[in-house]
Structures are given as structure tokens and as C-alpha cells.
């Protein structure tokens, strides 16, 4: 065990994948000599050569489209989009080809490729650098959508993504890049499609993912003083979604709050809340609540605190869960 950041865990996962599998190639904008604007690919070109980790022209659609062709022909591309909002030029390739190629060809063409996207806010970034874009991807059948919240998950889920026969959108909560935890690498955590119970509790379930997991954890700790014992479920993969773990938790607690930084309208949080309402209606003591970002374009740095879910908002939501009837 040693102290590891999420950024280091991702870097190590890329390095280990490059070392183990000669078909893995890493490319994108500034990922070579610079090591990426977040330094996630730091040292990879030096260690594995320019054929394995390289810079491309500034062309996000081209980067993803070329990766599609490479994946059709024996390589395992791992591409970096520089920021969430700069992946939008690639959306046509992602929605029309990355997501659909296997289905279109009835399994004849598979696309083992990973699109890494630093996403979400909380870092004081200016416009176009803080979008929570996960719902676009989660809404697109054919994509696997992963978002780690811990260093060990960052390593393990990225290795699983690179080894996957299907394309994976790997969403890296950029505000967690520098968060440290005791971890041993290489780590092997639960596979895709399994949520993790990060904190066991009896009174209510907080469902969170990616950048909102620490918020939910802090809220659960603060709730102790209020006399609430909260369970925290980290989804880890948005697609496939682990209904079973979420529903088992809510069946136990009878109350649920979904916490997510993305704007709430038509969101992953909405989907999770709807599924809980459908599947757990008879055990619910109170309506399912959502604590999400506001339905606004991501605010400027000095106003972002208005937008982001925080401990107080989570506790306020928990307070509305009809405790008087308990």
C-alpha cells in the first residue's frame, strides 16, 4: 500500500496496458511530449515510443473515426479527448459508428476501443471545461460508460475497459485527479456492472457516481450528527447499470436520494430515480429525491458553487424523507 492519486492510477493503467499488449495505442491532443494537459499520459511516449503514444492533429471527430478504423483492423486504441466539451465534435462518430458498429454488422465487426474524457467541474474551470456529459453517452445504446471515483477503481476499470471487446466511454472526474488514497497497484476491483457500497447504513441510501461520490460520503458522515445512518452506493459503471445492488440497498433502507453533479433534467440521476420508483415502490417510505446540478449551462468559476451538489443540499434532501412516519 502506498498513497496514490487517481491521475497516477490512470497513468499506471495505461503504462501496464501498453507493456502487456502490443496492440494498444494511445493518442490524442498533446498526449505525447507534454503528457496531456492533465499529465495523465506523462512518460508514455518516452517509455513505449512514438508508435505507441502519439500526438494527432486537432480533430476530435478524426481522432475517434481513425480509432474506429484501427479497432476494425487489429489495434486497441485508447484515445484522449482533452476536455468534456471538446468531445462534442466527435459525437457523430461516437453515436453513429462507435456505438452501432457491432449491432450493424451483427457482431462481425467489434470495436475494442476506449475514449477517455476528463469530465465535470469543481475545479474553477472556464466555459467548455466543466461539462457533465455522461447522459449523452449513457443514452446511446452500444456504449459502455464507466466513471471511477477511487484510485483503485480508476486503475482496474481502465484495464477492464482496454481489455473489453466493446467500446468504452471512460469518464474521469477531473476534480478527483489529485485526490489521494492508500492503494496497491495493480489493483483488481469488481468488474463492470457492479456498484459498490462505499458506506453501509440502515436509514437511507445515497446513490452517487464519479465526482459526486465524495460529496455523498461527506454527507453521510455529517448525517451521523443528525442521527441518520446513511448507506452510500457508488455506481462505478453507468452502463451497464447495477440495478440489483441499488435495489437491494433501497429495499433495506426504504429511502433513496440520488446525487449527481450533472444537470438533472433527462439525466442518469433521473433514470436511477425512476428505476427505484418502479422497482422499490412498495418498500419506499418516501418519494425518491434527486440532488443534481441546476438545469443551466455550466456556470462561470465564481458561480459554480451555486450549481454543484454539496453536503447541505444532500442533507436537506435527506431531511425531507418523511422521518416523522418512521
Amino acid at each position: 500500500m502506498s498513497s496514490v492519486t487517481v491521475a497516477q492510477a490512470i497513468n499506471t493503467a495505461l503504462a501496464d496496458a501498453l507493456a502487456e499488449d502490443p496492440s494498444v495505442v494511445v493518442f490524442g491532443e498533446d498526449v505525447g511530449a507534454l503528457g496531456g494537459v492533465f499529465r495523465i499520459t506523462d512518460g508514455l511516449t518516452g517509455a513505449y515510443g512514438e508508435d505507441r503514444c502519439f500526438d494527432t492533429p486537432l480533430a476530435e471527430s478524426g481522432i475517434v473515426g481513425v480509432a474506429v478504423g484501427m479497432a476494425m483492423n487489429g489495434l486497441r486504441p485508447v484515445v484522449e479527448m482533452q476536455f468534456d466539451a471538446f468531445a462534442y465534435p466527435a459525437f457523430e462518430q461516437i453515436a453513429s459508428h462507435v456505438a452501432k458498429m457491432r449491432n450493424r454488422t451483427r457482431g462481425a465487426v467489434t470495436l475494442p476501443m476506449v475514449i477517455r474524457i476528463p469530465y465535470a467541474g469543481g475545479i474553477g474551470g472556464v466555459e467548455h471545461h466543466c461539462d457533465s456529459s455522461e447522459s449523452y453517452y449513457a443514452h446511446t445504446p452500444g456504449l459502455t460508460v464507466v466513471t471511477p471515483a477511487t484510485a483503485e477503481d480508476a486503475y482496474s476499470l481502465l484495464r477492464e475497459a482496454i481489455a473489453s471487446p466493446d467500446p468504452v466511454i471512460f469518464l474521469e472526474p477531473k476534480r478527483l485527479y489529485w485526490s489521494r488514497a492508500e492503494a496497491t497497484l495493480p489493483a483488481k476491483t469488481e468488474p463492470f456492472g457492479r456498484a459498490a457500497v462505499r458506506r453501509a447504513g440502515r436509514d437511507a441510501t445515497l446513490v452517487a457516481y464519479g465526482p459526486s461520490v465524495p460529496v455523498a460520503m461527506q454527507a453521510a458522515e455529517a448525517a451521523v450528527a443528525e442521527g441518520w445512518d446513511l448507506e452510500v452506493v457508488d455506481l462505478r459503471t453507468l452502463v451497464p447499470l447495477d440495478d440489483a445492488t441499488v435495489m437491494a440497498s433501497v429495499a433495506k433502507t426504504g429511502r433513496a436520494v440520488v446525487v449527481a453533479e450533472a444537470q438533472g433534467f433527462a439525466s442518469v440521476a433521473s433514470e436511477v430515480a425512476a428505476r427505484i420508483a418502479e422497482q422499490c415502490f412498495h418498500v419506499l417510505e418516501a418519494p425518491v429525491r434527486r440532488v443534481t446540478g441546476l438545469d443551466i449551462p455550466y456556470p462561470p468559476p465564481k458561480l459554480e458553487h451555486h450549481h454543484l451538489p454539496n453536503v447541505d443540499r444532500v442533507l436537506d434532501a435527506v431531511a425531507t424523507l418523511q422521518w416523522e412516519d418512521a
Binding site: V25, D51, S61, G62, V64, G65, V66, A67, V68, G69, M70, A71, M72, N73, G74, L75, P77, E92, Q93, S96, H97, M101, R104, T105, V109
Partner: peptide, 23 residues
């Protein structure tokens, strides 16, 4: 490749296949 309908989107695929072959 599958017959492509979204205009020009097959062009980068061609580049990727060519790149991988040459690699």
C-alpha cells in the same frame, strides 16, 4: 466496410484501417 450513410464519416475509418495495416 458497411455501406456508410452519414456522409464522409467512413473516411476516417479508412485512415484507421490503413494505419493499422501499415503498423
Amino acid at each position: 466496410g458497411p455501406q456508410c450513410t452519414p456522409l464522409a464519416t467512413q473516411a476516417p475509418h479508412a485512415v484507421g484501417v490503413a494505419y493499422a495495416a501499415r503498423a
